[in-house]
């Protein structure tokens, strides 16, 4: 309760402050936004000119392929942030998503190696992923535990179960589906890249093209108002966590296909997933998380790593540059947001 009052208070004060010089500030916002996008464009232009082979279709498809796993996970995270609100300590967040992917990958690879077919194994992976998501939903919605805390506990459970299942070893896997994902292609675009394209199309349609998606934004933006308007807030929030688990399962199939195995250490993806989901807000007009924005930031992170690779810059720089970019973008955003009034 206190959090809500706080938000409205802060919003109101911002608004009064903003009305005075709104025209000037709006112009400043425009400049700042264009500046952020120009910075992205400048980096890309640099790569285009100086990184050999950067623009070749082979390379670009490679980037899309590499981004598929991060992208699918980031969609899951984005929907949780949309439905739970973007307040950092109280809002929606799913810290368990990367560990969940690791667990699903372990289940998938283990079942394949035990001789079960693709159908059953994929079904089991999706079942496990959604079960973990449902556990998050139960904790957050049913028991009212802070998302940050609930998903932290579930992270430990999922990561531990992955370890017990695989004994911290690499579980090799091969199957027709994996073979198709690795080497199949259609219209000159590989199956893995198609996976990201199709998944993106579906999720962008659901979140940004349907009444359901709009209601999800309402629930995250102002739960009280959403409740007053007759929306079932618990249902929508639960949905985001289960959907996040589903995304983890899909990403697990992709990661097993890329590596031909389930490998330990998938939890390290968590920070990149968070970064992608949060960085994506800069691409939206009101600085809210959007699926399109998330896709752009995932591709940007992918292109960045790729460009560095082509320029022969040590990969150790990638994290740092990614971090500096997050800070730059967010600093610009928070400056621009000052003129946006509420939120």
């Amino acid at each position: 309760m206190s959090a809500t009052t706080l938000h409205t208070e802060a919003g109101a004060s911002d608004e009064t402050r903003a009305t005075g010089k709104s025209a000037g500030r709006r112009f400043a916002t425009l400049v700042v936004r264009l500046g952020a996008i120009a910075a992205f464009a400048a980096i890309m232009a640099y790569f285009v000119v100086f990184a050999p082979g950067f623009t070749s279709s082979f390379n670009l498809i490679n980037v899309v392929e590499q981004s598929a796993i991060l992208g699918v996970l980031a969609y899951g995270m984005t929907s949780v942030i949309i439905g739970g609100g973007s307040d950092v300590t109280e809002g929606g967040i799913d810290l368990s998503i990367a560990a969940n992917m690791g667990l699903c990958a372990a289940v998938y690879a283990t079942l394949l190696s035990m001789g079960y077919g693709d159908f059953l194994s994929v079904l089991a992976a999706i079942g496990v992923g959604m079960a973990v998501g449902a556990l998050n939903a139960l904790a957050v919605v049913g028991l009212g535990i802070l998302p940050l805390l609930a998903t932290l506990a579930v992270l430990n459970v999922a990561a531990g179960m992955e370890l017990t299942l695989t004994q911290n070893t690499v579980v090799g896997a091969s199957s027709p589906l994996l073979g198709f994902l690795v080497s199949g292609s259609f219209l000159g675009i590989s199956a893995l890249a198609w996976a990201l394209i199709v998944f993106s199309a579906i999720i962008i349609t659901i979140i940004h093209g349907t009444a359901f998606g709009l209601r999800l934004y309402a629930v995250g933006g102002h739960p009280e108002a959403a409740r007053a308007a007759g929306l079932s807030v618990p249902f929508y929030v639960s949905f985001t966590y289960v959907q996040s688990g589903f995304c983890a399962a899909v990403a697990s199939v992709l990661t097993v296909s890329r590596l031909s195995a389930s490998t330990p250490g998938s939890g390290e993806l968590l920070l990149s997933v968070l970064a992608a989901a949060l960085l994506g807000t800069v691409f939206s007009r009101r600085f809210v998380p959007t699926m399109g924005g998330t896709l752009l930031s995932v591709l940007f992170i992918g292109l960045l790593a790729n460009g560095f690779q082509l320029l022969n810059v040590s990969s150790y720089w990638v994290n740092g540059v990614q971090g500096a970019l997050i800070l730059l973008v967010v600093a610009i955003t928070s400056f621009a947001r000052g003129s946006e009034g509420s939120q």
């Binding site: 994290n319 740092g320 971090g323 000052g338």
Partner: peptide, 17 residues
Amino acid sequence: NISPFLATLGVLFIGQS
């Protein structure tokens, strides 16, 4: 004026590099 979550996340990445 960066939110603590994002600011320290950025610093985390830079620190790792």
